[in-house]
Design a protein around this nucleic acid. Structure first.
Lengths: 198, 198, 198, 198
DNA sequence: CATGAATGAGCCTTCATTCAT
DNA sequence: GATGAATGAAGGCTCATTCAT
């Protein structure tokens, strides 16, 4: 192709920005086109429609994010705490560098018309689940319901970002990453062992 | 006296169900009316419009939930682990008893046109924050950034419910409550103390 | 009937006020009921519906007005100028005493769904036409196209009231009645005699 | 370039026709679209909504009419009677040529939600007022309350057209223009001088 | 009888999508 | 290829009217 699709990139950036900020339903095709400095019809040259564009972008962004995160979770070398810290730090730095890109990943899922936008293969939760199962097998963390544990970890990673975005956590993500990582490590180690009756 | 407003309750139930299931934007007034077995105009006798109905219901549900949860967080008697367990158990039982009611609380917030549907007074996060600060003052848990800690706890409570709703956590909420509570206790106790560099 | 229909009167007054002020289409049944301090259903006890109420009131008001005005136009005694003056003065005093009542008559006609709310018998224009024809027969005013002449007179009576209502004529109706009457007399006497080519 | 907005003109014509015939409130967007042979949404590409369309068209039509009429009222050359005759003739010819266009101007004003659709600059009454004041200064007509006189003239011009439209004046406007002009001249000359007490 | 809850047709408007230019 | 005028199916909402209480 002679000309690179420079407008496509502008539309993608504009769409991600708007989807992350206002949600899928409240972002119109005209909004996207205007923000990208492009005609309304241009969208249909690259995507089948607004929803298809959104889910394509969503899948792509999630995939890129998951792949970037994978090494942190699969590297078995350093001690657990250090690996968790590196992973959380990566995520929170990613957020600071491109807030709307991660916000798009965080906030958009609920809004899709069809339930299963992501196949399990590139789902962050799947990766997190595999991580937990592996660590249990390795004896790094005590045995537990991996699904529950992965959920706890996931919630612990995301919620501080969400609360920051809502202005309820004052310190910036990069500054709290270490705290969050420490908490998650405690979760993984002390985990779901039942000591309630103590 | 005129006819009693017998259909208001039916609309509330139908609306909560639909908002929780499909989100605000994708639930139409017609949907609500049909699900409630009511004419479309009936909504406007009791609320100013769809959005006002949603935020009124949302505030009411959150308020009821927060007030029901408060005793569990304010009671200072039993040891921490036991109190956390009771609180989580309450929440997860609540979910099993009325899934859509809690799902409505969980999923709806992002979708509101105006940012601040809740005043801080009846915000669950505010209550959780106060809980963390109190426990730190009492020396029950080690000092830490309370906002971050409250976020971690909140995420840990909610995410397992969310993943269950998405079918990614197999066991029912009531069955995993103890595990979740144990994890949160570990979080609170081992907390965000930095032992990463160890 | 035991109780006099006191509420009917309140509804009539409220309706006339609102119709005159906001027009037929923009006045709702609920507006009328609220202004009359009455339930919405009450209207249907006395009239078949909003439109029927409006046209009934309109006919009644026009009829009352026409009948009150009739003596001034049919009395053949005094000189023309004096009779015109008395008639205009009556109309303008009527307006000052009950502005909305006359405004209702003036402004409402265009808004009716069906063209012919009034039968010619109680139409003000019919009466004015008869007046002009009679005066011509009597030789009081020079012969002319009576329909045109009556239109000129009618416009000359109404427009100053309209412009006053729009705030474009500063002096109050009672104060300008004499001027208006003088103008109309000039119209009737000098009339439509063609002196253009002079 | 994109498709040229060929249907805008068709909508304008249809809207003016319908507004003039049935009034603002009783003309629906569907009516306009159907009469123009156009989809309903087309309206919103060119105007913000039905009301904005109506007031824009109204202003435009009034402006065009006022500007076309202005030379007749500002030319100070010929004797008054001749100038009045020319002006009335112009208006009545205008009506015969494009009845709905003038009817739109005549009938629509009352129906607007907001009071001041026109700024005084392009208001016909303002122009008429200036005309009367100028003639008084020039001594062409006797001194009088200009606001009242302008109202009388305005009513005398419009009412015959209104009555014709209602079928109460048989002869067509062009045929009665001379009579109307003669009446108005009498009004201006004999004016509002008080000779009532004679 | 009065009330006002309830109805539902119909209104204005939005917006994803198509397609003439 | 790109544009944006045009479409038309919904959507939220209004309001005259009905009728259970």
């Amino acid at each position: 192709m002679a000309r690179p699709a420079v407008k496509k990139g502008r539309m993608e950036a504009a769409a991600i920005e708007l989807f992350a900020t206002q949600g899928l339903a409240r972002t119109t095709v005209r909004d996207i086109a205007a923000a990208a400095g492009v005609g309304e019809g241009a969208l249909y040259r690259h995507w089948a429609g607004k929803n298809e564009m959104a889910s394509t972008l969503f899948r792509r962004e999630v995939h890129a994010f998951v792949e970037a995160l994978r090494p942190f979770l699969e590297d078995a070398g350093p001690p657990l705490a250090r690996r968790v810290d590196a992973a959380v730090r990566f995520i929170y730095d990613f957020y600071e560098a491109q807030p709307t890109r991660l916000a798009f990943i965080l906030f958009t899922q609920h809004g899709f018309p069809d339930q299963h936008v992501l196949d399990d293969a590139l789902d962050p939760f799947t990766m997190l689940l595999a991580f937990c199962q592996r660590e249990m097998r390795n004896g790094t963390i005590p045995p537990a319901d991996a699904e529950v544990l992965a959920s706890l970890v996931m919630g612990s990673v995301l919620q501080p970002l969400i609360m920051h975005r809502y202005g309820r956590v004052a310190r910036p993500p990069a500054a709290i990453a270490a705290d969050v990582a420490a908490g998650i490590t405690a979760l993984l180690l002390g985990g779901t062992a039942r000591e309630v009756g103590a």
